[in-house]
Design a protein around this nucleic acid. Sequence first.
DNA 1: AGCACGCCGACT
DNA 2: GTCGGCGTGCTC
Length: 858
Amino acid sequence: MYAQVVVDVPSKQTNRPFDYVVPEELRTWIGVGSRVGVPFGPRTLQGFVVALSERTDMASGKLKKIEQVLDLVPPLNPELVQLARWMSRTYICHEITALQAMIPGALKAKYEKRIELADDAELKARKRADAQDGGQALLFAASPEEEAISAFVRQKGQVTTEAMLARFPEAGPLLKRMLEQGTFVEVQTVRDRMNAKTALFVAPAASPEELTAHSMKLPANAKRQKELLLWFAENLEPLPLAELTDKLDVGAGTVKALADKGLLSVTERELFRDPYAGREFRRTTPLALTPEQRQALEPVADTLERREHGVFLLHGVTGSGKTEVYLQAIQQCLDQGREAIVLVPEISLTPQMVERFKGRFGSAVAVMHSRLSQGERYDEWRKIVLKRVSVVIGARSAVFAPFDRIGLIIIDEEHESSYKQEESPKYHARDVAVERAAYHGAAVVLGSATPSLESYAKASGRLGSGAAGRYRLLTMAERVEGRPLPAVNVVDLREELKAGNRSMFSRGLYEALGQRLERQEQSVLLLNRRGYSTFVMCRSCGFVVQCPHCDISLTYHQVSRTMRCHYCGFSQPEPATCPSCESEHIRYFGTGTQRVEEELAKLFPGIRVIRMDVDTTSEKGAHERLLNRFRDRQADVLLGTQMVAKGLDFPDVTLVGVIAADTVLHLPDFRAAEKTFQLLTQVAGRAGRHRLPGEVFIQTYTPDHYSIVTASAHDFGAFLEQELDIRRQRGYPPYYELVLVTLSHEQVPLLVRAGEAFASRLKQCWEHERRGRGPGYPADSLGHLNDARGDGAYFEVYGPVASPIPRIKDRYRFQCMIKYRGNVDVAGMLAETAAAFDDTVRNDKLTISMDVNPQVLM
DNA sequence: AGCACGCCGACT
DNA sequence: GTCGGCGTGCTC
């Protein structure tokens, strides 16, 4: 049998399967999706089996053998292998990169070089050859040091270079010589980063009757053995040894004695590091659905029932009870014997959320998120591979859960940009989910109070596409129990300034905050910017302190009194005088969360504030701890960046304040208005979710902007109409698809030339394609956007131009934007262009990155 | 990605 | 005349 293996080398030339012989003894362990160690050139690499066959095109004499199988149960399955192929084409990445993204980091290959004594025969042969060569035999007269080292290696069998140098610190050069001479050979092995944790389990090895019978025959002094046997006569379940010795107060010796007699069995079993061990989850039962909820659930249930593929967009206002709909759909899916995946944005994967799922489905749930340790993550993932669970709830990468009977995939807060991975493979979990669901005949539910325009357009049929690829729209417009949406006050900060208020709090928000303190209710404050102030400028000469490695201004952090770069992490002490003109008139501009915290303390002495941003939540468990403190009413105000806007549900929160609604609005991003609308709607939804009514203050310098007006009126429809109009006019998604190609290099001139070359090649590629299709395609861009004839396909390359952040980590960046629509194989054209480009502009230091459907145009 | 093979400059 | 630069090509 032969296997096709994709090896762990992400390069253009190795981006294809290589053939290997499957040794007879490994056959039962190898399947499509197995992780294997294979010889590749001079070394051993990790690889994934992507196909098995009885035949090969290669002269079989040339084939090498698979050396080892890395897992007893293949970590991937044929469907995921196929999905990796799809991803590599769709997102233009190496196949191995897609495959690697599907397994937990713990299984990333770890290569280890070890030294062992050369085979005797081989060594003798080399000696003979050398002697004939000119009699260098003298070299082989081993010195005492050599003898010592050889003895060490012989004794250990194999040693790593590190272990060797730890024992013989001076032996570096000698070791090298001995390797050259052939006394030692280097071998490379693939190892896992992670080992499953195991423990010894004890179980009865005979029937209860036999155990009881034996216990009678035991000598009178074998009291402990007797006790143990009688216990196992009643308890048939295997038990960890440690727990047993603890519980029954018997020694391991007693167990062993009985095991030797064949009455008990002791086996090694995998233990799972359960991050939620020892936590009680209150069992919940399905709630009675509101008519709206029932109406939303019904079509999903129907699709599940028929085991058909279908995508639903569940548009439900904040507090409308989407989660209960998810839970009941999942229940039905499980009842069918199928599996479910629930995706949640990283920051809203809070204990509250986990609790709701664990509470309903108990131990059938695996949880995957980045705050788990590598070991915990690996164990949760093992539960999926070993079929111990049938529900996974997790962040983006959980979409790759290695299930093989998927019935339902839920994507909560589907508009969240964190579903897009910003590193290669730059996939969008929403698209991957739809692809997987199509394979499995599964349903997808995209849920949001503020759907992405892409999804909404697909659901409303606005793109004019046929039934194919169309999502079905489900709407829930009311909050459960008819609670009203909070009243929203938009505060014009310009008016505040005119009235002489230069504080960051408007009079309205200030008063409202004071009221909540009096009434002992809680408030949430949002400022979408961490740190203390955004930039530091000299008022004498206008100098702005910038990162020396990135073209971006540094942010001042009060606590550490440092200036930090939010892109590369560079930090330096705050300047006392202007680095440029040495003036002392340095001023801090803009407001960050730290600054607001300070201001609150000044205005409301004794106020208890919890600040939540990346700086205070980087520690493990910090996020949860802060939220618990807030829930337990140990604070009056929860102040934070966007992480306070999502999914939180605290009954006593009656006030939400947005310090500056414009921060996102003016970014050079075509989604700026959409993001602003979403953020405001989401954060407003945190108020008044329970008994007490809520109130919202939005502070802004642009109160008339449609995103702010519509968000304050809770009017998604109005926002949508306006935004879609603008997108159509400007040629942006959802009407047009984008691909962002970014080139980076240390030198600008080379980069400019490369960019031009890339763009013109790509244009040629399209010209060729276009001519093949005949006339009817507009050649120019914006003026002709709606004029596409023929099959309506359109394609245009913009740029190259310098990227919005022209330099990051000392590398300059240029980008080309590709806009297209209709039946254009852009991925194919890009792959072709990149290949041709590689052949002509060969330069290892030039990197080209492609972002299909980019979320951020940086 | 590594690593070997192969063809042109500054040194013993 | 050699050591070594990294351009080019290959890995089942």
